[in-house]
Design a protein around this nucleic acid. Structure first.
Lengths: 233, 233
DNA sequence: TCATTCTATTTGTAGTACATAATTTGGAAA
DNA sequence: TTTCCAAATTATGTACTACAAATAGAATGA
């Protein structure tokens, strides 16, 4: 056992263990802070700190008088704080940007697994709106909606949550080039067509081409270690 | 402003804001708890709770006497607690399993970007060891090392950290079929050959085939919602 | 100069008291 | 009896205090 852990951290694990042993389910109420303090043999301050840590991870929620109740842990609950804190360094941002590109290309198989008409219709609707729009900001929003729909279509709820986070992150951080739409090799329309009658492999090839501007954009955003591209005009 | 936030949570954000405003860098020391307590106008208990939350997110580290120092936030720091807590439900596990498959297929471009000889040599070495081994457990370890090396080669440190977590998670959770090695369509050797002289597109196709057993395994692991595969023998 | 001990400082833990909010209870009015 | 409002209850939230533990850095000695 690592003994260099804080008592609060040890208590955090003890509580998790306690939860697992007692077979608590989502929605169940934990013992009150004072009771936990007695059960675990530590002061209430420590119990509170442990609970606070579990809260930030999304394990529990606490409400006055009601007590502490178990919630299903959301993996991205804590990540959100990091992403929105504005303290991420450029390397971490680059990593996230890359991960998103990987996911969009790699999700092809799962898109074809969950290829339901409602999703295809939604994609079609977005494309229709794109075709009658010239406003650049609107086009960006539609682009985000298109890709967001793909994430939804992947059937992976955690992934969808993650993507939503990234959207808010990169919306403020990584502004697009003005000509991003013009330069795209493969259109949303082509992607949809492949979704309808293609294969995961052909979709990956198409998506890679579709994202080509993003790959190039990435270099200008992150690879200039010397320059200071903090606020590109 | 959301006023339903706990003082500790508000303080957590205030501290983040304070860090951002003062331009603190990784490695810098924050003001001491008592000073922060004065600066922010809350008691030290609250400051400590806020710092504890930041600690679990990997924003800061604290050591006795040394004080609180900024560390570069590791996105996966908090996730680790969740993953190792044993409270993840099957849906979340399935999500993670899927994400890993997506990443391995989607990372192709980045592998080719960082195609250095040392990585290729490492992969070659693993393959050589595989060829002289018959022990099934050893082969599994080598398989993990092979894929782990790919993650390293992707040049994405966050991703590498994430993958390490998933390894420990699925090592205990998702045992492999005994015949996983036999059934593989594309060998590690072929993958390496493609890394040397192929393209990202051809690598993706090969990796998809290589992972085919995983895709099939996934169904038996997660899709039996009725059955209880908690402890498969 | 180097090793050792001491000291001052800072985080870690505990106990207590009170504030605050929400649930529950109890009583009064319809 | 039912409805509604108010007070009591109760659990979390905040604050203050005191002391323990650890350790960086100063002081001391060989």
């Amino acid at each position: 056992m690592q003994k260099d852990l804080t008592l609060a951290e040890q208590t955090e694990r003890k509580i998790l263990k306690y939860i697992a042993e007692k077979g608590f389910q989502t929605g169940d109420a934990l013992p009150k802070e004072n009771e936990l303090s007695e059960i675990l043999g530590v002061s209430r301050v420590v119990v509170r700190e442990a609970l606070s840590r579990l809260r930030i991870l999304g394990f529990v929620e606490t409400r006055r008088k009601r007590g502490t109740v178990l919630t299903s842990p959301n993996i991205f609950y804590g990540i959100k704080t990091i992403l929105t804190s504005g303290t991420l360094d450029k390397d971490a941002l680059k990593d996230l940007y890359e991960v998103r590109l990987m996911l969009e290309i790699g999700m092809a198989d799962f898109l074809f697994m969950h290829r339901e008409e409602r999703y295809l219709a939604e994609l079609q609707k977005i494309i229709s709106e794109e075709n009658v729009t010239t406003d650049s900001e609107m086009l960006t929003r539609l682009d985000i909606r298109f890709h967001s729909t793909l994430y939804k279509m992947s059937g992976n709820k955690s992934l969808f949550a993650f993507q939503n986070l990234l959207n808010t992150l990169f919306a403020t951080f990584a502004p697009r080039r003005k000509d991003w739409k013009v330069k795209q090799i493969i259109s949303h329309e082509s992607l949809l067509e492949i979704l309808r009658s293609g294969t995961p492999d052909s979709f990956r090839v198409a998506m890679r081409l579709h994202l080509n501007t993003r790959f190039e954009n990435m270099h200008t955003l992150f690879l200039d270690k010397e320059a200071t591209p903090a606020n590109p005009s």
